[in-house]
Amino acid sequence: MTGLADSASQTPALAPLSLDQALALYRRMVLIRRFEDTVQVLFQRGEVPGTTHLYSGQEAVATGVASILEPRDRVAGTYRGHGHALSLGVDPQALLDEMLGRASGLCGGRAGSMNVIDLAHGLMGCYGIVGGSIGAATGAALALKRSGGVAVAYFGEGATNQGYFHECLNFAKVHNLPALYVCENNLYGEFTPMEDVTAGRIVARAQTLELPAETIDGNDLWAVRAAAAAAVARARDGGGPQFIEALTYRFVGHSRSDPGAYRKPGELDAWRQRDPLKLTRAGILERYETADEAQLDATDADVERQIEQMIAAGLAAPYPTPGPAAEFKA
């Protein structure tokens, strides 16, 4: 863990989760994983058109951050954004229907996997251009400064090499905007290892602009919650933009066509030992005397039933009808 010395010290303690709350977060993480597995299967069956970028392996980041947010906050996700959406409570059926290109999709089938938007759940957008989420959340923070809200941007470590990153973190700092920048460092930008294309440390880039910044274990739900709670509290209190680098790993390829041949030998297996779902299960059993495996297994089974129903409903949903569409809001 690295961080500015003053970043974590002035923060009130985060109230511990009740068992029910912890189980609800675990359920959400399982839902994200099973949702992504489902998208993958439906893609291979030809039911999901285009391309997909799955969040499998990174569930603790979005789930942990979202567990700290309030309805007045806003989130900008990435093209790997299904997890960002589901963590906010976006209707999984509507999200799946969007992947399937159906009229009942979250955006009526107009957006697809990479560009999901759900304003009702605080998701201002997911951005198919690397770094776009950073700009979007910076603007959101400008508006939320009036209402006490905080804007969160998710992005990968690859986005820290984009102009958006430097321009917007500087912009947010000089205007003291309530933004939380969450870099999900999954070690690869598409197929290329981070170290081949990235100079220096990610967190140092934020620190040089004097954002409170720390590197955390992004697969540890409790670590994410603690860091996010502190950062969000500081941003909400007028402390300006905050930065978290969450170390994590995607268990799948960059996109649908990528088998992940570039991974170092043993790397995937090592990260699977630190699967955020496994860690969360273990964490719950360790923290709550009344928790048991049966509860967690029941949660898994419950999500499984939900997924089965969603697949059936999604595949039965009608496609949108081609026809004239409004270019502008009247």
Partner: peptide, 8 residues
């Protein structure tokens, strides 16, 4: 982008 995000 700040204009875009704030407008949304």
């Amino acid at each position: 982008s700040a204009a875009y995000g704030s407008a949304v």
